[in-house]
Amino acid sequence: MAAVSPERSAFSAIVIRDLTLAFRHRGEIANPLIFFVMVATLIPLGVTPEARQLAEIAPGIIWVMALLATLLSTETLFLSDFRDGSLEQMALSSESLWVLVLAKILVHWLISGLPLTLLSPLLGVMLSLPAEGFLTMVASLALGTAALSLIGAIGAALTVAIPRGGLLLSLIVMPLYMPVLIFGASAVQQAVDGMAVGGALAVLGALLAFSLLISPFAAAGALRVSLHG
């Protein structure tokens, strides 16, 4: 057998495990995606089918929906592991807990943020987003949803032991989501207006890098506190 460092094998074991679990619970993963698509179909019906007006609000709508869809799936990030004792086993691993937490966050992005990003061009068409905005929208969602998954993990870890912690989770996480939403939506808007988008995307990248540095450690610490209760 090839020599694999223990961290890497524990990391990949959790990634494989969570992807298998996600595949066996396909319905639950589809839920936020269906929500995302459904709202986008309802907006033209409820607001206006007029392309020019839709195009104006499209960047904001798509980003808000992506944010809410991510938030929907964040609550369950650690919940089943907490309930069936797997989380305790992970916390007692001789590997660092943050490595395992990072694996879980990666899978969360792969099953929530990534499909949202891949679906977003469809929504762009439905909401008459001008063609100049598409590439930036996909890029900003790819960066932004990864940051949202990382930030959400901290909130999910803090509230996992609290019964009906969903509301609290939203309250904790929402303010931290704001910068991602603002820069994400404005990047798309700027692309539509024909302006340079480098700045806004760079800020999104910086937010992603920052949350990547902080979040696995913060979430791992919060999980230990939750287990202690």
Partner: peptide
Amino acid sequence: LGHQPGVKTALTPRENLHWLLAVHP
């Protein structure tokens, strides 16, 4: 081994042992 066995019901026994052993080499 605690009260909650740390076994995922959606996985098979083999898959469960596989991840548990990766976490506890």
